[in-house]
Design a binder for these strands. Sequence first.
DNA 1: AATGAATGAGATTTCATTCAT
DNA 2: AATGAATGAAATCTCATTCAT
Lengths: 206, 206, 206, 206
Amino acid sequence: MSANNERGGRTFIEEARRAQIIQCAVDVIAESGYARATMAEIGKRAGIAKSVISYHFADKGELMQELVRTAVATYTQFLEPRLAAQPTAAGKICAYVTGSAEYMSTYTNMHLAVLEVAFNGLGPDGRPLTASIPLETHKPTLERILHDGQVSGELRQFDVRVMAGLLRSAVTHTMVMAQRADPDVDLDSYARELATAFALATRDRP
Amino acid sequence: MSANNERGGRTFIEEARRAQIIQCAVDVIAESGYARATMAEIGKRAGIAKSVISYHFADKGELMQELVRTAVATYTQFLEPRLAAQPTAAGKICAYVTGSAEYMSTYTNMHLAVLEVAFNGLGPDGRPLTASIPLETHKPTLERILHDGQVSGELRQFDVRVMAGLLRSAVTHTMVMAQRADPDVDLDSYARELATAFALATRDRP
Amino acid sequence: MSANNERGGRTFIEEARRAQIIQCAVDVIAESGYARATMAEIGKRAGIAKSVISYHFADKGELMQELVRTAVATYTQFLEPRLAAQPTAAGKICAYVTGSAEYMSTYTNMHLAVLEVAFNGLGPDGRPLTASIPLETHKPTLERILHDGQVSGELRQFDVRVMAGLLRSAVTHTMVMAQRADPDVDLDSYARELATAFALATRDRP
Amino acid sequence: MSANNERGGRTFIEEARRAQIIQCAVDVIAESGYARATMAEIGKRAGIAKSVISYHFADKGELMQELVRTAVATYTQFLEPRLAAQPTAAGKICAYVTGSAEYMSTYTNMHLAVLEVAFNGLGPDGRPLTASIPLETHKPTLERILHDGQVSGELRQFDVRVMAGLLRSAVTHTMVMAQRADPDVDLDSYARELATAFALATRDRP
DNA sequence: AATGAATGAGATTTCATTCAT
DNA sequence: AATGAATGAAATCTCATTCAT
């Protein structure tokens, strides 16, 4: 890898391989769980020797880090316009829930994989990173949305951190569990149910 | 272990050892994460050789299974009277959330450990058991409560499975994340905030 | 290994195994060189699985460290009485050279192995330890002997560090090379030749 | 490489590349030790891909062999006129020691590197070459000088192989160790000390 | 002449599990 | 009932080497 690793300056082919490897890692993790996602398994899935992974990523940690980075970027790009399109806080909340469901339908494995990594993966220090970075990604955004809604009088007075946390859980936990329990679940209507619940829980006038 | 394992017929000492080992596993998992909870580490914590664990449990899977069984039983015993004490659906929902917070304060490590196991552990088939048994434990109970509330006209018409799922997530995910982010968080008031949200989201008349 | 590693408190059997493993490592290194002395190779020589080595030593570094420690202690125990028996500086110098030759005949592999480790081994920091500790072991002793000889007027005025260095080299390098070139070399007479040279090079009156 | 490798018939550019690669190998080995001198590292130092090294040298063994050959040739060219300039055996001995010190000051890395290779490198058979070729290079020359000195009556009767070995060690071991211990050591005066010692140890009349 | 990419062999280390005592 | 000792499978990572371009 040598100099390439240091940010920027990567071949087209290299980018393609990295993307392919990340995708295979995503698939293996989503289908078989983090514990089974060994270098050998990922390599087998990609049809390459496991040392090829070592060639393109400094170590397993970097691979997982890149996987998470990719997933978060994809998710954010997916969600942002949908949030921006809604003028009201209620609209944004609904868009967050339904948009996440839509994302989850489109990028199922990626959504599952990033959660697996978040819960099972270890940081560089060897300690579990347990959802530290990835899952908290959108919390600041959510808190701002909720806060603005309270200021404008659209939403009632509640603890924004609690509600933001519940919103995150609804998306990264509730829906994921539902889909795991029944892969054929209709995420769309599931999300609408959740959105209704949040609308009632957050609106100002009872 | 010989014949003893097959349910029943365990010495008093045996039971004590098993309980001790489970407790040590709980502590190690809660403090250091599932990945670090090796047999050696658990044994060290218990002050015994790791082979003693193998002596009392068929394999690591059985240990984890028993850990989960214990935790679920404790949780259920803790929660049941609190639910029974509430005549209304709204009361039961509130009791579920606040009771869980109370449980989480009392049995912090157990609550954390069982989630770690649920997310990271592997089933007998080698596939991740991801929340299969443990997290779904109270879902039927919750669904019944919600359903009864709808029938009696106390609660509005929503999809009980969705709402039950969200309730489970609030307890096993939202609050846990909150505590991880800030170990000094006041779980009591956190739970009250959640309870309010659920009251608004589920009550019949707006 | 657990608690045992922490100094003291080792089983008899464990000590025996450690000694056996060290001895096998010595033999492999002396016969095939440091590069070939892999865990697998050492294990094979000892007739044990390579993981047994890991069981008794924290890592390869600790094994090498113990090997060097053992060798240095053996060498020192061998040499000390021979030095103490000589009252004069000249006698001690001669005893150092001839005693080392005798040691080398008795513990050939150990002498060779410790030099291999010194030159090829890596320290905990990953940098080569190149003879740092082991080879310098007796230099202070030599320097004191030479210094005392100068003070008493028995030896001429020379730089004691240079002469001590040359003495060390004669023993760890000249004789070793000679034996490698011809394994049947008579170390005894070889040492006597060296001793004569040093006597002439150090005595006071020409 | 095709046919070029077989001696002779190398482009000017080819020769330049080979020389550059050898020099970089020398520097890496001297500064970081043999174990760290991987193809990748040497390539990085030279600013070329590691496959370029494979292109110019059959394998790592050939590179090291060429490195040693170059170093020995340089050393010999450096030393020869200094030896020839001295008519007496004593003068040649002194010139050998001081000349080597001068060489070591001028080509520090090369001197260090060739020793590293001699001690750590493996021969074509996979066995360590341990100083076989390189370190013995000048021993015949030294033995002849010593022998001639004895015949002419200038030097006393000693075993020329032993004394030649000690002379080699003084240069390849004693001085190297001294410089490693203290990089600022004054090699010139160090060499003069050694020369005096050898003069006393070898001259005929006490 | 040069190189990026790929590869496979091999080294170290971890860990659940087994076994004789 | 307990344990120290041993084991083998598996995982990660390194490195010299090869090959198509």
